[in-house]
Every structure is written in structure tokens, then in C-alpha cells.
């Protein structure tokens, strides 16, 4: 999911940076005191999740967890994910500094979209909430895969081929993340429902 340095064209990198900067600014503005520790912990979870990899076909993919990060943080997902990606690129050499903006958008934008789509459903009755949680984990990765296809479109010119490849490669991750999100949400619902969006 991390796009390496030297793959993308300048305009794509710059627009990625611009969108990431805007998202991060909104996120920091919306991040209130009570949410800080939560944002930090989810950022750490996101940072570590990339080390859990799933071997698929010719490639290997790893957990992303952007669905749950978005669902719990909303716009604050942008700064959390950007910090984690920055550390991943410095410490693990995943992605790179020039592609930090693009990679942040790829993973944080679906997180925010999922927040708006599914946060209202999480406090409904259990069956709806669980379905929403699964869809959230699943769709966040799906949208990220689509965004990878979009950003590569400008350098590879065959959107459908790249997008299909990325989406199929991430199908197992989508399923796993859907299940992880269901577990996390049902657990939080039982133990500490005030953490969930809408309960504040």
C-alpha cells in the first residue's frame, strides 16, 4: 500500500502533499484534549500494523487498520496516520518522504469517509452496528486500494489493470480488517461505549 519514492510524477506528489496538509490541519483543529491519547494509541497501532503481513499471490500485503482509526477519530485520522507513516518511512523505509503526502491521502481519506458513512450506525442496535463495523474495515481498505490505482494512473496509464490488481491483492486484507473492526467495536461497545463516535 505504501507507494515507493521515484514512482509517481511531480504533480501527483504535490497534490498529494496539498490534500494531506489540508486534512492534517483540519484534523489537528478538530482534535480535542480528550481525544489526544486515543489518537496517539491508534497512531501507534497503525504504525505497528504494517508489520503484520499477509502473503498474497506475487506480492505481499499488510494490515492497514485505517477503517477503525477513521471510525474512532474522524478527521483526527489524518494527523495520526501521517505521523505513523512518517515514522514508518524513517524507521522501516516503507514508502518515502516525498511520497508521504500521497500515502497519507491514500490511507487517511478513506478513513474519514468511513467515519461519515458508518459512525452514525455504530450506536444502533447490535446487528446493524456489527455490519457497519465490518463494512467500515472492509471498505476503508477497498477505497485505499482504489486510490493507489488512481495515483498510479498518471504514471502507468492503465487504471483498470492497476486498480484490479491492487484490489484483488488486498481482498484478504479487506476481510481480515472487517473482522478485526467488528471485534474491536463490539469490545469497545461493551467495555467503554463513550469512546465511540456520537456517544460524546
Amino acid at each position: 500500500m505504501h507507494i515507493s519514492e521515484g514512482v509517481l510524477a511531480g504533480p501527483v506528489l504535490f497534490s498529494g502533499m496539498a490534500v494531506a496538509a489540508a486534512g492534517t490541519a483540519i484534523g489537528i483543529k478538530k482534535l480535542d484534549f480528550d481525544q489526544l491519547a486515543q489518537a496517539g494509541i491508534l497512531s501507534a497501532a497503525f504504525f505497528v500494523a504494517s508489520l503484520v503481513h499477509v502473503p498474497v499471490g506475487p506480492s505481499s500485503v499488510h494490515l492497514i487498520l485505517n477503517g477503525i482509526v477513521g471510525l474512532l477519530l474522524g478527521w483526527a485520522a489524518f494527523p495520526s496516520i501521517m505521523v505513523a507513516l512518517l515514522l514508518q518511512s524513517i524507521i522501516f523505509q516503507f514508502g518515502g518522504l516525498t511520497t508521504l503526502g500521497v500515502n497519507t491521502v491514500i490511507m487517511a481519506l478513506p478513513a474519514v469517509i468511513c467515519y461519515y458513512l458508518f459512525a452514525p450506525l455504530i450506536n444502533k442496535k447490535s446487528s446493524i452496528a456489527m455490519a457497519a463495523a465490518f463494512a467500515c474495515g472492509f471498505l476503508a481498505v477497498f477505497m485505499s486500494a482504489l486510490l493507489v490505482g488512481v495515483s498510479l494512473y498518471f504514471s502507468e496509464k492503465n487504471f483498470f489493470e492497476v486498480a484490479t490488481l491492487v484490489v484483488t491483492a488486498h481482498l484478504p486484507v479487506m476481510l481480515i480488517e472487517g473482522i478485526i473492526t467488528v471485534f474491536c467495536i463490539s469490545f469497545i461497545k461493551k467495555v467503554s461505549p463513550e469512546m465511540l463516535p456520537g456517544a460524546r
Binding site: I41, A45, H53
Partner: peptide, 20 residues
Amino acid sequence: IVIALIIFFSLAGPAAAHKV
């Protein structure tokens, strides 16, 4: 619990990730 989850993840795949 989240911290426990993090530790579990970090033990699960210490040397695997996404870079070529």
C-alpha cells in the same frame, strides 16, 4: 487491551512488511 493488541501484532510479524 489496545496496548496488548499492539504487542501481539509486533510479535506476530517482526520481520515482514511492504518494501521491495
